[in-house]
Simulated scan of single mutants.
Amino acid sequence: MAPAPASRSKAAGAKSAIPQLPWRSPRPAPVVLVTGPEEVCAERAIAGVRDYLKAEDPALEIADIRADDYTAGTLLAVSAPSLFGEPRLVRVSGVEKCSDAFLAEALAYIEHPQEGATVVLRHTGATVRGKKLLDAVRAGVGGGAEVPCPAIKRDADRQDFAAGEFKAVGRRIAPKALHSLVSAFSGDLGELASACQQLIADVEGDITEAIVNRYYGGRVELNAFAVADSAIAGRYGDALVGLRHALASGADPVPIVAAFAMKLRTMAKVAGSRESSRALASRLGMRDWQVDNAKRDLVGWTQSTLGLAIQATARADAEVKGASRDPVFALERMIAVIATRRPFGE
Rank of each mutant, 00 (worst) to 15 (best):
H112W: 04
D135T: 14
Q303V: 06
A63D: 15
A248T: 01
A339L: 09
A47K: 14
F225Y: 11
S186N: 06
D229R: 08
A231C: 07
R171A: 11
S79L: 10
D326W: 00
A168C: 05
R333N: 04
E146I: 09
T124I: 02
A45N: 07
W23K: 06
V270C: 04
F84R: 06
A72P: 09
L240W: 01
D252Q: 02
D57G: 08
A59T: 04
T127G: 02
S25Y: 01
K153D: 14
G307I: 03
M286R: 15
Y52P: 13
V227Q: 12
V337A: 12
L103V: 07
K176D: 12
R24E: 13
R287C: 07
G85A: 10
A258F: 08
L243C: 07
C98P: 11
A248H: 04
I46D: 11
E96N: 14
R154Y: 04
I65Q: 14
M334Q: 05
V227W: 07
A339T: 05
E221K: 15
F102L: 05
A80D: 05
R283G: 02
L60N: 08
G144Y: 08
L133T: 05
T302I: 03
K131T: 05
L103I: 03
A163K: 11
R91E: 09
M262R: 14
G144P: 14
G234Q: 04
A323Q: 02
V299F: 12
L33S: 00
A248D: 08
R342G: 12
E96M: 12
I256K: 00
L60G: 13
D155S: 05
S9K: 02
V49G: 03
E332S: 00
K153C: 13
L133E: 01
F161Y: 11
A11W: 11
Q159F: 04
A145M: 12
P22Y: 00
A55M: 06
G170I: 01
F84P: 04
A279C: 13
A323T: 01
V120C: 10
L89C: 09
S194V: 11
A42P: 15
M267T: 03
A17W: 10
I232E: 02
D68T: 02
A80P: 03
R341I: 05
Q290H: 15
W301A: 13
V40T: 14
E115L: 09
L178Q: 03
A59P: 03
D51V: 02
A29M: 09
G48V: 05
R66K: 13
T118V: 12
S276I: 06
A201V: 01
I310F: 04
G13I: 03
T305S: 15
S304I: 07
R27A: 15
S186R: 04
R244N: 03
D188S: 13
N293L: 10
R172C: 14
Y52F: 15
V212N: 08
